[in-house]
Nucleic acid binder design. Sequence first.
DNA 1: TTCTATGCAAAGACTTTGCATGCTG
DNA 2: CAGCATGCAAAGTCTTTGCATAGAA
Lengths: 135, 135
Amino acid sequence: MTRDEIAGLLERRRLSVTAQRLEIAELVLEKPQHLSADQILAGMRARGSRVSKATVYNTMKAFSEHGIVRTVEVDPQRQYYDSTSAPHHHFYNVDTGELIDIPPEAVELDVKTGLPARTEPAGVDVVIRVRGVGS
Amino acid sequence: MTRDEIAGLLERRRLSVTAQRLEIAELVLEKPQHLSADQILAGMRARGSRVSKATVYNTMKAFSEHGIVRTVEVDPQRQYYDSTSAPHHHFYNVDTGELIDIPPEAVELDVKTGLPARTEPAGVDVVIRVRGVGS
DNA sequence: TTCTATGCAAAGACTTTGCATGCTG
DNA sequence: CAGCATGCAAAGTCTTTGCATAGAA
């Protein structure tokens, strides 16, 4: 994804385009991945971009609120940001902490219960926990 | 659930039987529910039992490691302990934070993808997020 | 120029830990 | 009586916030 494409993405959501947001997006959206705030911060440092921790949190919060990324709750210790914002599911390796995407077509789900009264659907998350050394 | 039944439950798992554990279990296992550590602490206070926060955390950790309760990760801010340890799923109201059980029979799940290499299944969690005032 | 983003450090929420004391087995 | 559980406070993580400065529109 080029800088211009990312800039357009931000503009479409009325998010102001800043150097930090461009660089964070570049890093995060580079490929399908699951990153914690600290990993993003480390990645920024590694590529020579200086950003504060607060900006990483603020930016990722804005990105997730605007559908650019998704958050994944599996680890009680920290939040993960998922660069794939389209609906999909996950394998979660409880031993290694590794998260692996499952394409939505690979999961067939049939819920035979109505939604709670006066609520509307907001999304479905399937997490398949696995144990082992992983690949 | 009587005190004796709970005591037997603890003994079977080789957990030593203490007054605090009996009372926490009595409170938590009273009915199907989802409680945070703070809610458990408040519940203990309300019933006139004095326990420290550390003991609540230690006890619930022991209980979850021994299959007496389950933990639910949906709220990035805190962990919930689910008094229903048998497999089941959840509705999660993102507006109110409310968690509602879904019996396992009500969910039919077919995953057409193999597990990651060298891993074995450890459980499946389906979380259906809903929005609204709730019932 | 006006409003929002950034950076830093401080504050906050939740959870864990260290250690002395008490209770279980 | 040996060993684990408890309580308290302190320490630790992750995340948010306050405020002054810098940058976007």
